[in-house]
Each structure stands twice: as C-alpha cells, then as structure tokens.
C-alpha cells in the first residue's frame, strides 16, 4: 500500500536577498485510500510544499525527508519522482508550443508505464478519459495548454491524472478559477481516481468549496510554513465559518520575525 511520508521538511527559496525559508518543519503522512486537504491563507507555503514534493529546482530542501514507500524521494530527479508514482496537478499548467496534447500524453504514459501503450487501446482510453471530463476531442491536436482557458487547463491536469494513475496525487489549488460546472467535472474526476482506494490524494486549497464535492478524511491547517492544526472534515466546516483569522497571529509573527 502506497505511503508518502514527509518528516520535518524545511524548504528555502532563493530570492534577490538570499535564501528565504518557506517551509519550517512539515510532518505529513498520506496513505493509499486517504484524502487529505491542506488549507491555509495565501502565502502560508502550501504551494511550496507541492513544488518541493515534485522537485521543482527553485526550491531547496535544507533538511527533513520525503519518502514514497520507503524510497528517498529527495534523491530522485523530477521525472524519476513522477515515474515512482507522484503526480502534481499544477495551479498554473505550463504552455508548450508546438507539442500536441496527444503526443505529450502518449510520451508521458510511455515514460510512466515503462512501455508504449498499444495504439489501438490507447486511442480508446484517451477518448474515454476525455469524454468523462467533457473535453472536446479536438484538444488532442492542440499544443499543450496553449491558448487554453483556466478551466480547460485544469480539466487537462485531471485528464493526465486519470491516464497516469499515480500512487499519490497532489492537487495544487485545482479548484481556483473554476466555474461551478468545471468544478463539478474536475471533482468527479478526482473522485473516480480515488474510488479504487489504491491512491492517496493531497488537496491543497484556499477555499472550502471543492470540499463540498470531494470529502477529505483529514484536514490540515497550514500557516507560516507548517501544519498548525489537524482534524477531520469538521475542521473544514469550522474554517468556512470562521476563516483563517484564528491563525493570522501565527502568520504575522512569522513574517515579521
């Protein structure tokens, strides 16, 4: 059973004024079948956590560990992490001009599965997955994310999730910028992925609205670079009612220190 284990993770980002510590000791364990939500105010370091797990070169892990089923994730390159079973649905998916979506999906599936999918079944598989996410088949021939609306980009992130079937999926503000219909379609995609009970999901979000479609088993409040409170779904309800006011003190103390 897949387990992602993060222990005492400290991460810095390079700025003009030198390295700045963003994550200050994150502890989190995600197991297959579990859905975790990380919620927190803007600037609390939620996205940094997702990028650090995926291995973005801008973020430097200064101490702590990340393991996937006991394997040292930090020793892996970005692509090795993906092939090991980690997936990051990005908040701002990147445009790659001149590379068609279909070519990209097939190249990624080949890399992750370790062999090229059989063409006949692959075409069917992609078609079906696109259909479930209400994606027009014409997108397959367009350049990756180029000229896509925000909602179209997010649908395609979930399309990749469905095709690549990672062990652990991190969804970085996948709900941001989505209208009601797109939010429903995207959430259903995540629920289908989660239904088998074989995958773990980490939802990173600022708002509670996606949690009306996806039910988390655990909710963590993130402030000033670490998890400051953990609980069940009721914690999200509390946040919806009260906002992050309670945690503002921690956040401010951190930024002024």
């Amino acid at each position: 059973m897949a387990t992602l284990e993060i222990k005492d993770l400290h991460v810095s980002v390079n700025t003009d004024e030198g390295p700045k510590e963003i994550l200050k000791g994150v502890d989190l364990t995600i197991k297959a079948g579990e859905t975790h939500a990380i919620m927190g105010p803007n600037g609390s370091g939620k996205s940094t956590l997702s990028y650090a797990i995926a291995g973005h070169p801008k973020y430097q892990v200064t101490s702590g560990t990340i393991t996937l089923d006991g394997e040292d994730v930090l020793a892996m390159s970005v692509d090795e992490r993906a092939r090991a079973g980690l997936f990051l649905a990005m908040q701002y998916p990147v445009e790659v001009p001149g590379v068609s979506m279909s070519n990209f999906l097939r190249t990624a599936a080949t890399a992750v599965r370790g062999e090229a999918p059989k063409l006949r079944t692959w075409v069917k598989e992609v078609k079906a997955a696109m259909g479930e996410l209400d994606i027009d088949p014409a997108f397959a021939e367009r350049s990756v994310n180029e000229g896509f609306s925000g909602g179209e980009k997010k649908r395609h992130e979930i399309l990749q999730l469905a095709l690549l079937q990672p062990k652990i999926a991190i969804l970085d503000e996948t709900d941001s910028g989505l209208d009601v219909d797109a939010l429903r379609v995207v959430s259903e995609g995540v629920n289908r992925f989660q239904a088998s009970g074989e995958h773990g999901v980490l939802l990173i979000t600022h708002y509670t609205r996606i949690l009306r479609h996806i039910t988390p088993d655990f909710v963590h409040v993130f402030a000033a670079g670490k998890i400051v409170e953990s609980g069940g779904k009721e914690l999200a309800d509390q946040l919806e009612a009260e906002g992050y006011v309670k945690y503002a003190g921690i956040q401010e103390a951190a930024t002024t220190s």
Partner: peptide, 17 residues
C-alpha cells in the same frame, strides 16, 4: 519541469521542446 513532472526524462523533454 512540467514535462519532467509527467515522467518524461530530461533529454526527451528537451527534444520535445
């Protein structure tokens, strides 16, 4: 980063770009 985060090895990602 985006291409690699989907499992595509770096040399192959560069060629794609």
């Amino acid at each position: 980063f985006y291409l690699q985060a989907r499992g595509i090895p770096e040399d192959q990602a560069r060629r794609l770009v």
